[in-house]
Structure formats: C-alpha cells, structure tokens
Amino acid sequence: MRKTYDHASPIRTTYQRMNLTSWRYIGVAAVMAVCFSVIGYQEHQRYSLTEGAAGRDAVALVTEVTWKERKLHKSNFVLSVEFETEDGELRNERIDVSNELGNRMRSVDEVEEIDIRYNNDNPSIAVIKGEKNSEFIQLWLAVASAAIALILLTWRLISQRRAEG
C-alpha cells in the first residue's frame, strides 16, 4: 500500500516560489545590466574625452587627498587638483585615482604637482596622465547581467511554448 500525503512537498513549493524565469527576476537582471552599462560608459567616456585632438596636457597642484575605505574597489581615492587651462582659466577639479597613486599622494606632506590631461571643450573632465581606465568590471557585470536576462527570457518563452503545444 502506498502512503499519500495531503500537503505539498516542501521542495516543490520552494521551487514554485523561486521561479527564476518569472518576470520579476528577468526584470531585475535587465535593470542591473542597464545600471552597470551606464556606470561603465560614464567611466569610459571620461577617459576617451581626454584623448585625441580634444585632450590637453597640464601640470596640476594636488590641494587635497580624500578617500573612502571600500573593499574590492580599485579607486577609493579622489584628488582635488588646481590647474590652468590653455586659455588661462584657473580650474579646481576632483579626479578619481587608483589606490596606488592615492596612497602615494596621501603619504606626502607637502603640495605635490602631477601631470593631468583634460578635455579642452570641457575642462571639468580631467584624468591623471598615464593612468588607464581600470574600472572594466562594470562593463563585464553589464554583459553578464544582460546574458542572464536573455537566458531567463529565452527559457521562459521556450517553457511557455512547450506548455501551450
């Protein structure tokens, strides 16, 4: 004789509640992809706008070094710099820098000069000369999130077609 139970299996109800192909999870993955894309694009744009014909070199005075203690970030430091543009305009800007450079600048007690590149059309866009964009993780997270959203969407559509036909 076989035993029968009136209640549903806990495994089945847990799976039903955590349906990964629900529109909620697909939407969350898609929103994450968009957010990571925007962050990665802004960082990439900042570097690309200082290269080429629009980029200008300048020597800047580091007036302040600030930092936040955040784990897993390659850029926890911000330098406040003062420089003069080609047109003679005096600018005060804040530039995100790598932890290595930030630690080096933090340990210096006197005013330090540093080479920067800025965008001639918009001098508020400035980067440290020679530093590369190391924040590619946002772009990879965007690609991964988009791939997950597409996989879940495809899985959901295939499951719906099988259920219908």
Rank of each mutant, 00 (worst) to 15 (best):
S37A: 13
V78T: 13
W67H: 12
V34D: 07
E100D: 10
Q16C: 02
G88D: 09
L61P: 00
Y41L: 07
F83H: 03
I137S: 10
A58V: 09
V108R: 05
K68E: 15
Q45L: 07
G130D: 00
A149Q: 09
Q138G: 01
D96I: 03
E110Y: 10
S75E: 15
S9I: 06
R162G: 03
K68H: 10
D109N: 11
D87T: 15
L101P: 07
I151P: 12
Q160E: 11
A30F: 10
M1N: 13
L139N: 07
N19I: 09
T63Y: 02
R161N: 14
T21W: 13
L20P: 11
D121E: 14
I11D: 07
L20H: 11
R161A: 14
L101C: 08
G27P: 00
E89S: 10
D6W: 08
A163C: 01
E86V: 04
Q138D: 14
V59M: 11
R12Y: 03
L61R: 12
T154A: 13
R106I: 00
L157G: 05
A8W: 05
S22V: 04
V78R: 07
H44T: 15
V111G: 04
A30S: 11
E84L: 04
T14L: 07
F83R: 02
G40N: 09
